[in-house]
Write a protein that binds this DNA or RNA. Structure first.
Length: 381
DNA sequence: CTGTCCCGCCACCCT
DNA sequence: AGGGTGGCGGGACAG
C-alpha cells in the first residue's frame, strides 16, 4: 500500500508532560495544535492516507499514529465509515478483517448502500441484499419495528421513529455509532424533510423525545457523525433563516459542482460557513482563548503562520483548505487545476508539519473529488 | 446561554 | 484473564 512519508504523519499525541492530572494550560502549543487535529477532521486524513490505489487494509494502530490521534478516535472514524455502506461485501467501505485490522474497500459502494438504506426505510425491511458470503453482522435481528407503515411526513418523533423502522437501541451493541449513522442517514433519505436539526434527529432516533439527558448525549454523537457526513458531502450545515437554529441539509451523493447549484435563496436557507475548529481555520486563526493561554506560558513561534495571530486566514487572503475547496465547489468549477490552486492559495505555514498536512488534505480532496466525479458519470450512463 | 466536540473513563466483549 | 472496543457524559471553548 501507499505509505505516507514519515514527515506527513502527525506527531503522536502525548500526555501532558510530567503531569498526571489533566490540565490544558500545561499543554505546549505544539501539542495544542495537534489536539485540533482530532476527531472532527481526523477522518479526512484517514481518507488521505487510505483512500488510494493499492490500499487494502487499515491498521488501527498505524492509523492512530499516522494521524496523531488516540486509538479511541480511530474507532469513531471506523464505526462511521463502516456503517456508511453495508457491512458485508461488496457494499461496504470498510470491513473488519481481524483485531486491529480492517479491509479498505473504498467509497465506490456508497451509492448502492444508500439505495439499500432508502429501500429499507420505505419498506421497513432490513433484509440485506446479499448477506451470504462475507456477512459479519446480524443487523436484521435488530429491527425495531416491522410495521409496514411508510413514512408520511410525520413530524412526531415517536411515530417517525417507528414508521421508518429504525434500529432499536436497547443494549450496548444496538447503541453503536454505526447504527446511529445508518438511522441518521435514513432520516434524510426516507423522509420528505430536507433539513433536520440534530436535536430533532436525536429525538426521533431515540424514540423518546422527553428525556433531555438522553437527547443531549445523542446529539453529541450526532455531531460526531454529522462532521464526517458533511465533510463527505452527504449533508451540509445550514441555519434556519428564522430561528437561526443550526441544522443539516441532505445533499446525497452529489458532485461538488451539483451540491451548491441548488436554489438556496429560494429555500431561504443560510449555509453555514464552518468557523469552529475547522481544519486550517483553527490552526491558523490562533486568536482562540485556548491558544492564547498556552502562548502566555511560552509560545513556539515556529508553529505560527505568517499572518497575524488575530486574523483569520480568510482575512489575510489565506484560505483554509476547507474554504478553498468549498468556494470552488460553490462556483461549480468542475475541472480543477489542483496544482495551481494549491500553489495560489496554499497557506504559508512556517511549520513543516502544517505544510505537509495541507498537502495531504489537498490529496484527499483530489482523490475524493475524482471518485465522486466517476460515480456521477456512471450514474448518468 | 447555546452549540460544538474534545477527551478519556470504564463497562462490555472477544479471544 | 487480559486486551480490544466503544458507549457515554463531563466539561472546555466559541459565538
Amino acid at each position: 500500500m501507499a505509505t505516507p512519508s514519515p514527515s506527513s504523519s502527525l506527531a503522536a499525541k502525548e500526555p501532558a508532560s510530567g503531569s498526571t492530572t489533566y490540565c490544558r494550560k500545561q499543554k505546549s502549543l505544539g501539542l495544542l495544535c495537534s489536539k485540533y487535529y482530532t476527531a472532527s477532521i481526523a477522518w479526512k486524513f484517514f481518507l488521505s492516507l487510505y483512500n488510494r490505489d493499492g490500499v487494502e487494509t487499515v491498521g488501527l494502530d498505524d492509523a492512530a499514529s499516522r494521524l496523531g490521534v488516540e486509538r479511541r478516535r480511530i474507532y469513531d472514524i471506523v464505526n462511521v465509515l463502516e456503517s456508511v455502506g453495508v457491512r458485508y461485501l461488496p457494499f461496504c467501505v470498510l470491513l473488519r478483517k481481524a483485531k486491529n485490522t480492517y479491509y479498505w474497500k473504498g467509497l465506490g459502494a456508497i451509492p448502492t448502500a444508500l439505495e439499500q438504506l432508502k429501500e429499507e426505510g420505505f419498506t421497513n425491511n432490513d433484509e440485506p441484499i446479499d448477506c451470504k458470503p462475507g456477512k459479519v453482522e446480524d443487523d436484521e435481528d435488530e429491527i425495531f419495528s416491522n410495521s409496514s407503515v411508510s413514512f408520511q411526513g410525520k413530524t412526531d418523533p415517536d411515530s417517525t421513529h417507528k414508521s421508518l423502522g429504525l434500529f432499536k437501541s436497547d443494549n450496548r451493541k444496538e447503541k453503536s455509532l454505526g447504527l446511529l449513522t445508518k438511522n441518521f442517514l435514513k432520516l434524510f433519505i426516507c423522509t420528505p424533510s430536507e433539513t433536520l436539526s440534530l436535536e430533532d434527529a436525536a429525538k426521533i432516533l431515540l424514540g423518546d423525545a422527553r428525556n433531555p439527558s438522553l437527547t443531549r448525549t445523542k446529539v453529541r454523537r450526532l455531531y460526531d457523525i454529522a462532521n464526517v457526513l458533511s465533510s463527505m458531502n452527504f449533508i451540509e450545515k445550514i441555519h434556519h433563516p428564522e430561528t437561526r437554529k443550526p441544522a443539516f441539509r441532505w445533499l446525497g451523493m452529489k458532485s461538488p459542482s451539483q451540491s451548491q447549484s441548488q436554489t438556496d435563496s429560494k429555500r431561504g436557507l443560510v449555509q453555514e460557513e464552518s468557523k469552529k475548529r475547522a481544519f486550517g481555520t483553527d490552526l491558523t486563526n490562533t486568536s482562540f482563548k485556548r491558544t492564547k493561554l498556552v502562548s502566555d506560558v511560552g509560545s513556539d513561534h515556529s508553529l505560527k503562520p505568517v499572518h497575524s495571530l488575530d486574523q483569520s486566514p480568510d482575512q489575510v487572503g489565506c484560505k483554509s483548505p476547507t474554504s478553498l475547496v468549498d468556494g470552488e465547489r460553490k462556483e461549480g468549477k468542475k475541472s480543477h487545476d489542483w496544482e495551481s490552486l494549491a500553489l495560489t492559495h496554499r497557506p504559508q505555514y512556517h511549520n513543516e508539519a502544517l505544510r505537509d498536512l495541507f498537502a495531504h488534505y489537498m490529496d484527499a480532496w483530489k482523490s475524493w473529488y475524482s471518485e465522486v466525479a466517476e460515480m456521477d458519470q456512471i450514474q448518468v450512463i
